[in-house]
Design a protein around this nucleic acid. Structure first.
Lengths: 185, 185
DNA sequence: CGGCTAGATGCGTGTCACGCACATAGTGCG
DNA sequence: CGCACTATGTGCGTGACACGCATCTAGCCG
């Protein structure tokens, strides 16, 4: 336990929380107790509470981490690429590589008690994304346009996810993402 | 008490919760107890719980109601108006008429524990907005493009709010809203 | 006028977040 | 080489809360 650094412990708890929630399916929040999450992650209940102050936060932590990487992904695109292509590529490699887990995504996006935390996770991705957009388009950081574009992109990803979940015969998520992004770029 | 209908009671509780939270300023969630909200609204603590299952939800209820009216506002625009003009007008009259209360908005958008619920409130506005957009542009409801555009508009409103709060000398909120919407329409 | 329903309220219970104190591993300094 | 010091995990106790259940009251309809 002590050998794992803080980030690793946080990840372990988050993954355990999400896994248990998905196993229990709908209504998981009523069944999965803090003690369950803690023991599944190999920590004491009190320790879980040092990292997260609610089960919702823990369950959404892994997706929050994924969303936070979007800005970095955009920065990593080659400079010669057009802005639109770079954003699409960054989004696809961040959210559709590998293909997301339908059960986990459904749990997070369709459970009312988790929606707030999930939206918060998506929204936290906007700030680094806006900075990356500002850098790439050569405007000053904190520009209103960049933040609006970042919010639009994040919103498109979210809507694409909802659409993808509603579809019974699943096309590749990347296809839905590209279609959604086409409307805002 | 019994004379007020359910909606009125809900509104009374929501307003009381927001008012108390704003009065206490930052850290209000630690100070404002359920009993305080209930007594301020003139109901029993158990009754508050029949309407809301968390203080966050109660505090954000008034803004949720405001956001939910956006779709209706768009439908109410004259048919001859261009799509862009109609959206801008609907947004401005929904969110900037009258000029919002800075303290209340700051409380909701800047308190971490409230952000999730606030984002949920904004997101709930997207569905009726998407339907109104579909109706006005003549495409089938549930179209991906409409939902993405609705999300982009809601995101622009949210970013505009954040920007408006960060500005020390406040321009009219409608001005910021128009600037933000220009980037996504 | 009597039963009926919706809504408000009280009470009890299980869960939770968090402050506080302690134990212990890893670390730098003399 | 040993010693304090710090960071982190953990146990315990407390206050608050969400919610199920039972009750009561007001208003309504026949």
């Amino acid at each position: 336990m002590r050998s794992r650094n803080k980030l690793a412990v946080r990840e372990a708890i988050g993954e355990a929380a999400l896994r248990l929630a998905v196993e229990q399916g709908p209504g998981a929040l009523k069944v999965v107790r803090v003690a369950d999450i803690a023991s599944a992650a190999g920590v004491a209940p009190r320790t879980y509470n040092n990292y997260f102050s609610s089960r919702e936060e823990a369950i959404c932590a892994v997706h929050a981490g994924q969303a936070r990487r979007l800005g970095k992904a955009l920065r990593a695109r080659p400079a010669g690429e057009s802005f639109v292509d770079a954003v699409v590529a960054a989004v696809v490699e961040t959210f559709a590589t590998p293909e997301p887990d339908r059960a986990g995504l459904a749990m997070i996006m369709r459970t009312p008690e988790l929606q707030g935390e999930a939206l918060k996770a998506f929204t936290m991705a906007e700030e680094p994304l806006a900075e990356a957009i500002a850098e790439r388009t050569g405007v000053t950081a904190g520009d209103l346009t960049c933040q609006v574009r970042a919010a639009a992109i994040a919103g498109a990803v979210r809507v694409a996810g909802r659409h993808w979940l509603d579809t019974t015969s699943p096309p590749p998520f990347a296809t839905v993402l590209r279609a959604a992004l086409k409307s805002v770029l």
